[in-house]
Amino acid sequence: MCLAVPGKVVEVDYPFAVVDFKGARRKVRIDLLDDVKAGDYVLVHVGFAIQKVEKSEAEEIESFLEQLAC
């Protein structure tokens, strides 16, 4: 429930953005954050970006989630 998934912002159309989650793209609300730009990495929870993260951090979280999924 409280899990958040990292993804890369591809396109911004405030208050929305298209976020790429390892190939799967989804429209996400970004108005809980300031200054979200294309190329940023964000943590997404139930369709809302709740935090900006560094690329390396996003990759770390992603690799953990991949382990969970297998």
Binding site: M1, C2, A4, R29, L32, H45, V46, G47, F48, I50
Partner: peptide, 29 residues
């Protein structure tokens, strides 16, 4: 996402009730 519920409400004339659960992670949405 609760946002999907809002989109349903925009398209439908019936009342849409979202049963909102969750702690502070989910409440802002």
């Amino acid at each position: 996402s609760v946002f999907d519920a809002v989109e349903i409400a925009k398209k439908e004339s019936k009342p849409v009730v979202h049963f909102g659960i969750g702690f502070e992670t989910t409440m802002p949405s």
